[in-house]
């Protein structure tokens, strides 16, 4: 059973004003659909904002639930980092996003804040090619080292495989290739 909540959840509006009071105009957009609070922050302040969300006693979003990325191919900026946070004490959840342009696909690593970010960021690097500044061990985690390209980018060919051993017969007819 969950332990009783010791502090009431902060309302979304007061959370926004707390962030604004501390950072100024760092939140580029915010939304609250069906109780799912989302903020989009500046990429340059990514680590600072998340550190604040984690450490400020009134917020205390101390659990990193998930970290992933979305490829909005055709939009500018192209990529969007998504982080889901949970505050154990208050039970409040928050989604934090930041847009990343294709030509400079880098963002600060969250490993200094949560060690669990390590493998999640390696997966995002493996699948989307986002580079995490300050990551201690940025290697591919699922694909093999000689794999070229990033398979979850929308411009990676859907069925293009990169065999490591010579195949006895072709995997598919040429015209089937997409």
């Amino acid at each position: 059973m969950a332990s009783p909540k010791t502090s009431a959840p902060v309302a979304f509006s007061s959370l926004l004003s707390v962030i604004k009071g501390h950072f100024g105009e760092v939140v580029l957009a915010h939304r609250s659909d069906f109780g799912d609070d989302t903020i989009v922050v500046q990429r340059e302040r990514w680590l600072d904002v998340l550190r604040f969300l984690k450490d400020a006693p009134s917020l205390a979003f101390n659990y990193l639930v998930d970290l992933t990325c979305v490829d909005y191919f055709g939009q500018e900026p192209r990529f969007e980092m998504v982080v889901h946070l949970l505050a154990f004490e208050s039970g409040k959840r928050l989604r934090v996003k930041a847009r990343i342009p294709e030509e400079d696909a880098t963002i600060a690593s969250l490993v200094p804040l949560w060690r669990s970010a390590n493998w999640l960021e390696r997966e995002v690097y493996d699948m989307f090619g986002i580079r995490f500044a300050g990551h201690p061990d940025l290697r591919r985690i699922l694909m093999y080292d000689e794999f070229e390209g990033y398979p979850l980018r929308k411009d990676y060919p859907l069925k293009k495989s990169q065999p490591r051993v010579p195949l006895l017969s072709p995997e598919r007819e040429e015209e089937e290739e997409i």
């Binding site: 694909m143 398979p151 990676y156 859907l158 069925k159 293009k160 495989s161 006895l168 017969s169 995997e171």
Partner: peptide
């Protein structure tokens, strides 16, 4: 897709 071998006979 990009990762699965289309049968062990390959």
């Amino acid at each position: 897709n990009y990762t699965t071998v289309r049968g062990a006979d390959k």
